[in-house]
């Protein structure tokens, strides 16, 4: 008989590499949930995920209305891909989604980062992606602690009971 032994999660390092509302919020909810439970949380944004911490874009994230099989019309009918391609539709749908989330008390991105850092969570940006997108530290939200290389990220992600999560 092998004895089952659970190690509690004490720390999470979460990587977000995409800019869609659902990808960014999955990372934010997980990081915030961790600090709410008294765990340590590090949130690392890379590639298009950088939009979530770039002042100019962070509160204007979109969800894809093309190539998104989960997208439905109000009432549950399938959302035609061609409709999603019409200019303005994606912006409208995304605004609707943000509005619905606000009603559930899910905050806008900047306020969510406020909440996470207030609880001791830390926000980081990927150096390589910053160079690729020609971003400077000043372009990023003040909640970002620093810009890290992947080596730096692994250095802060370790420890007993720690998990690395890629959303």
């Amino acid at each position: 008989m092998t004895e089952k032994k659970d190690t509690q999660v004490k720390k999470v390092a979460i990587v977000c590499a995409k800019a869609s509302i659902e990808d960014v919020y999955a990372a934010l909810v997980m990081a915030n949930g961790a600090v709410m439970e008294g765990m340590e949380a590090k949130l690392f944004f890379t590639f298009f995920g950088l939009d979530a911490i770039t002042k100019k874009y962070m509160n204007k994230l979109h969800t894809a209305t093309v190539g998104n099989p989960g997208m439905r019309m109000p009432g549950g009918l399938p959302f035609p891909t061609l409709l999603g391609a019409i200019p303005g539709v994606e912006a409208g749908v995304s605004a609707m989604m943000r509005n619905t989330m606000d009603k559930l008390d899910i905050p806008p991105v900047d306020e969510f980062l406020d909440m996470i850092t207030a609880g001791g969570g830390e926000i980081y940006a990927c150096k390589l992606a910053m160079d690729m997108f020609k971003l400077e530290k000043e372009d990023l939200s003040d909640h970002v602690s620093s810009v890290l290389t992947i080596g730096d990220f692994y250095a802060i992600a370790g420890g007993e009971g720690s998990q690395i999560i890629f959303t």
């Binding site: 008390d105 406020d114 909440m115 207030a118």
Partner: peptide
């Protein structure tokens, strides 16, 4: 937590 932070009694950092 957000509601507590908006209660006017304490901010979120103070709550933590």
């Amino acid at each position: 937590i957000r509601k507590v932070g908006k209660s006017g009694i304490v901010d979120i950092k103070g709550f933590y």
